[in-house]
Structure formats: structure tokens, C-alpha cells
Simulated scan of single mutants.
Amino acid sequence: MIRFDNRAAFAAALADLPVPDTSAIAAAAERQAALTKPAGSLGRLEEIALFMAGWQGRDRPEAQRLRAAIFAGNHGVAARGVSAFPAEVTVQMVANFRHGGAAINALAAACGAELAVVPLDLERPTDDICTEAAMSETECLAAINAGAAAVEPGLDLLLLGEMGIANSTPAAALCAQSFGGAADHWVGRGTGVDGHGLARKAQAVTLALALHGPHCGDAFETLRRLSGREIAALAGAVLAARMLRVPVMLDGFIGCAAVAPLAKDNPALTGHCLAAHMSAEAGHERLLRALALDPLLRLDMRLGEGSGAAVATQIVRSALAAHANMATFAEAAVAGAL
């Protein structure tokens, strides 16, 4: 299991990222070229197979050990009326996850992923990012390590999701701090706030950036000041997965925002990540462009919970099934291209 003993260890890991296995990619590409189909005719399915081969280190990658890790946290900024739901809904939804009644329960089962739900000090919201840093250094490191602990060697794919009332506000702050732009370029309606709620979100992000922006010198400090426990956990899970060469399926706006500070420090960070979908949240398309990620789906989803990641995992399973199970031209006695 990966653990970051201090912020320096976190920064060192981010600076020295493993790369995919090029020999496995080459072997998978050789197999692709021999399958009974015109070259490139399966489009992105072929790209996904090569991507997975590189991170799993085998020419026939698998989708057997799938884990959906969902992190939950509460936010002090919720008291500013930036969400359409009260903060207690986070606790209630975690109970729903554990009783099997949420969308992610159904969707994780449908794609064959085990579900791990990780609540993070729900009774103790982070501090309001408009007036204080969200977390102390100790608290941020604990959240990052909670995310890292959800990653095991040998997972074929890690699906990530979150639950946290008001967390689209710190997510917008992370994006603005990492990639620039005014608050209103990044805030969206989240759980369905009205125009007044949207204005409150933009104001909260503006206040947070003015207070913390000059002090956000690296990814860790940006997460500590502007994020939340579940968001920091997502960042920790993504970095730990990279260290273990586990490919990651990111979900929507919150999940992608969690890696924004890391990608600012090292743009190669997203090299082991797939973007499940482009959500209906206003800033998500801009964020995906900044992260150089091309979403697999566009379904106007905006639920969170890892729901989009679970749906997109079905595409990965299809890509790997075709790659592994199709016959080659030689096996099928079909004349190949000359």
C-alpha cells in the first residue's frame, strides 16, 4: 500500500511518475494489426486497449479486478448557501451507498466493480475556504493517504467518485487556481442551485482565491487550502494508482478538479487516466481541455458518485473483450490486407 509520510514525499512522487510499458503497448499493437478487421475500424476501442496494455504491462489487458472507490466529505463553505441541499445529505447518502440504494450501487454492479465507500470525518466539516484554509497540513495529508489506501496493486482499473454537499464550490476554486480564469468561468449549478445560489458560489470562489491564491505554491498547498477531504482523497488515490501502475477512470467535474493542482505541477499526471464523460456542469468541458483528456461519453450526467465512471467502464470492458477474443486473420483463415 502506498503512503505519503509528509508533503515532501507527496511532491517527490508527483515529480517522478512511472511511465507505461512500451513493450506491452507494442505487443498489443501488433495483435491489433492482426485481428480480423480493417485497421483502425474499432476507433477509440483500439486506443483504449493499447492504453490499458501499457499500464497493466501485458499485451492482452484484462478487466477482472475493478474497484469503484467513493470518498465522502463535508464542507464549511456549505453554510454560505452554495448548494441546493443541506450538508446532512452527505451522511444520508453514505448510508444509502452502504444499503445498496444509490445509482452507483446499481452501476458498479452492472460493470462488475466492487464498491468501496470511504467517509472522511463527516461530523467535522472542513473550514470555510472563504475565511480559512480548508484543512491543516495534518488533516490534508490524512485525507490524501485515505485515498491512497483505497488503491491495491494488481487492480485492473480504479473507478473514482465522490459525495460531498457543496463540493462543486471548492472544485471550481481548484480549477481557477490551477488554470486561471474568473470564478464565473468555473462555477456551475451543481445540485441545482438557482441564479442567486450561482452568484453565491462565484462570490465564494472569488473570496477564496483572493485569500489563498498567493499562498498556493504547489499541489499540496492548493489542496490543503482550497479543497476538501474527499477531494484530497481523490488526488491521493490518483497519485497512488500511478505509482502502482493502476489505470484510473475519472468521473465528472469534482473528480477531474481533484487532479487539477497535480496536473498543474506535472502535466504528465493524467497519462494513466481516462475521462469517463463530459458532465453537464458548466466548467467541465474547459477543465477536460486543460487536462488534455478526451471524454468517452457525453450523456449530460451530473450526479457524481462515480456514476459516469461506472457507465464508461462498460466501454473499457468492450474494448478489452474485442482485443482479447477476436480471431486473427491467420486463425480465421481470412485473407489479410496486402
Rank of each mutant, 00 (worst) to 15 (best):
residue 235 A to G: 04
residue 125 P to I: 12
residue 121 D to C: 07
residue 240 A to I: 00
residue 87 A to V: 13
residue 82 V to D: 07
residue 288 L to D: 12
residue 220 F to L: 10
residue 77 V to I: 15
residue 126 T to R: 11
residue 130 C to F: 06
residue 103 A to T: 08
residue 51 F to A: 15
residue 75 H to Y: 06
residue 211 L to A: 00
residue 46 E to Q: 06
residue 60 R to N: 05
residue 198 L to V: 08
residue 278 M to I: 15
residue 160 L to M: 11
residue 90 T to Y: 12
residue 56 Q to Y: 05
residue 88 E to L: 14
residue 102 A to V: 02
residue 202 A to D: 00
residue 29 A to W: 03
residue 176 A to V: 02
residue 184 D to F: 04
residue 325 N to W: 14
residue 163 M to A: 10
residue 196 H to M: 13
residue 24 A to S: 13
residue 267 P to N: 10
residue 245 R to D: 04
residue 282 A to H: 13
residue 200 R to P: 07
residue 51 F to E: 13
residue 217 G to Q: 08
residue 160 L to N: 07
residue 129 I to D: 06
residue 208 A to M: 00
residue 170 P to K: 10
residue 86 P to M: 05
residue 274 L to V: 03
residue 146 A to E: 07
residue 180 G to Y: 00
residue 92 Q to M: 12
residue 144 I to Q: 11
residue 194 D to L: 10
residue 164 G to K: 04
residue 299 L to I: 09
residue 7 R to Y: 10
residue 296 L to Q: 05
residue 108 A to T: 00
residue 96 N to R: 02
residue 153 P to N: 05
residue 95 A to T: 14
residue 332 A to R: 04
residue 31 R to I: 10
residue 323 H to N: 04
residue 168 S to H: 14
residue 245 R to W: 05
residue 316 V to G: 06
residue 42 L to D: 01
residue 95 A to Q: 15
residue 151 V to Q: 03
residue 296 L to I: 08
residue 240 A to H: 01
residue 48 I to R: 13
residue 112 G to R: 02
residue 42 L to M: 05
residue 122 L to D: 09
residue 26 A to D: 12
residue 210 A to Q: 09
residue 208 A to K: 01
residue 327 A to Y: 12
residue 75 H to E: 01
residue 261 P to T: 04
residue 338 L to V: 14
residue 162 E to K: 05
residue 20 P to D: 03
residue 99 H to V: 12
residue 117 V to Q: 10
residue 116 A to C: 04
residue 276 A to R: 07
residue 167 N to H: 06
residue 76 G to T: 14
residue 66 L to V: 06
residue 42 L to K: 03
residue 131 T to R: 15
residue 127 D to R: 15
residue 291 L to I: 11
residue 117 V to I: 15
residue 163 M to N: 11
residue 153 P to I: 04
residue 19 V to Q: 13
residue 58 R to E: 11
residue 157 L to R: 03
residue 44 R to E: 13
residue 59 D to Q: 15
residue 330 A to R: 14
residue 276 A to E: 07
residue 78 A to E: 10
residue 112 G to L: 01
residue 260 A to R: 00
residue 94 V to L: 10
residue 268 A to W: 06
residue 99 H to G: 12
residue 74 N to Y: 11
residue 277 H to E: 13
residue 187 V to G: 02
residue 320 L to A: 08
residue 309 A to G: 08
residue 203 Q to E: 13
residue 179 F to Y: 12
residue 208 A to F: 00
residue 271 G to P: 03
residue 324 A to R: 15
residue 285 E to P: 09
residue 59 D to H: 15
residue 67 R to P: 05
residue 206 T to Y: 00
residue 303 L to R: 07
residue 28 A to I: 11
residue 24 A to H: 09
residue 301 M to K: 11
residue 263 A to R: 09
residue 197 G to N: 09
residue 201 K to I: 03
residue 267 P to A: 09
residue 268 A to L: 12
residue 46 E to L: 04
residue 95 A to P: 11
residue 122 L to R: 08
residue 308 G to I: 06
residue 219 A to C: 04
residue 321 A to W: 11
residue 336 G to Q: 09
residue 307 S to E: 04
residue 315 I to Q: 14
residue 142 A to N: 08
residue 16 D to T: 11
residue 205 V to S: 00
residue 289 R to H: 13
residue 167 N to I: 02
residue 308 G to Q: 06
residue 70 I to M: 03
residue 110 A to E: 02
residue 131 T to H: 14
residue 70 I to D: 01
residue 95 A to L: 13
residue 280 A to H: 02
residue 329 F to P: 01
residue 77 V to D: 14
residue 255 G to M: 09
residue 245 R to N: 08
residue 230 E to I: 01
residue 104 I to M: 02
residue 82 V to H: 05
